[in-house]
Write a protein that binds this DNA or RNA. Structure first.
Lengths: 173, 173
DNA sequence: ATTTCCAGAGTGATTAATCACTCATTATTA
DNA sequence: TAATAATGAGTGATTAATCACTCTGGAAAT
């Protein structure tokens, strides 16, 4: 990956996350990255190719957070680690997640491939703990993760820590 | 409100919710609504004016669902009604909420004005029930509402009902 | 050790299409 | 007839994408 290639990628991520994918033109990306517009198309084919490159770039780093949880065996630790995930996201990955959450709403089909491994892991954990409906409980944890992540990314609440305390209490963790 | 005015409004809402606000041109709205493009600007001034009209149009109907909860006095009923809100949204209001949730991510400052009345009502309810941290509990309910609404709007899960059962159980409702 | 060669990085002018928006004109209604 | 509703061609700006082109560093050939 060239220096300019990486500059394009990070600049586009910033703009896409901040202003929105559709609202950000390739010419603005080029100008902000200090690069000719043609270079974007040389390296990434088209605007969507640039977006896909950003997604892949971010997913590789996201896998590092998800990985250890999928290795864990203690059910309570699995649930706790999952619920604490939104707090483990480093600040410099915020734009990537903002972009991903924003895109959910305009993609035709929702992609479960990212959350499915965690869902299955959680279902197993709740089953071990003799919860009545492990599938629904797993789904609920995923909803909580999304909700907390959303409120953090949008800076909607300053007391996320206390909210998380309330959540953990409900699972006796 | 003229027949064509309403046609513009509902058509734009459909397209904005489905394809995104930025990705939907006024000419596409006009064509889909079977109306001249100029008419949009005559009635709504500009594209943002059209968006604002849609917001107001939807908020008036949303207030009908929110209203009764703010009147309620029994704390347990308040919490239960709040958590069940996502299920009370009629199907024909889905596009409006899809649009609203999508827009959250590209607006510069998040607008709390809609959720604040409910937040305060919930804080009061949790305080009455002697919860340790009413503010955090209220915030958590709002997060749950957003999360469940999201999963319903994106048709991410088919077992929302069971998820809600799990949620209500955690509040002993 | 020169010279030749070439692949790929990078440029910026340019394309056709589309964008939000305007306006003079016509149709409809009161 | 007066006012309003509606039209659709037209504006300049901007869009994503393409184009022919230059520059550069290293491999190959002499």
């Amino acid at each position: 990956m060239t220096e300019k290639q990486e500059k394009i990628l990070t600049t586009a991520l910033q703009l896409f996350a901040d202003k929105g994918y559709d609202a950000t033109s390739t010419s603005k990306v080029a100008k902000a990255a200090g690069v000719s517009e043609g270079l974007i198309f040389r390296h990434f084919g088209n605007k969507e190719g640039l977006l896909n490159a950003i997604k892949q770039y971010g997913m590789e780093k996201a896998a590092l957070v998800m990985g250890p949880i999928l290795e864990e065996e203690d059910p309570k630790k699995i649930i706790k680690a999952a619920l604490e995930m939104p707090f483990c996201i480093p600040k410099n990955q915020d734009p990537f997640w903002k972009l991903l959450y924003a895109l959910k709403w305009q993609e035709d089909i929702y992609d479960n491939s990212m959350s499915d491994p965690l869902r299955h892991k959680l279902e197993g954990a709740f089953a071990k703990l003799k919860y009545k409906n492990p599938e629904a409980e797993a789904e609920l944890v995923l909803i909580l993760i999304d909700g907390v992540a959303t409120s953090i990314l949008l800076r909607k609440c300053e007391n996320s820590e206390q909210v998380m305390q309330s959540v953990l209490a409900k699972y006796e963790l």
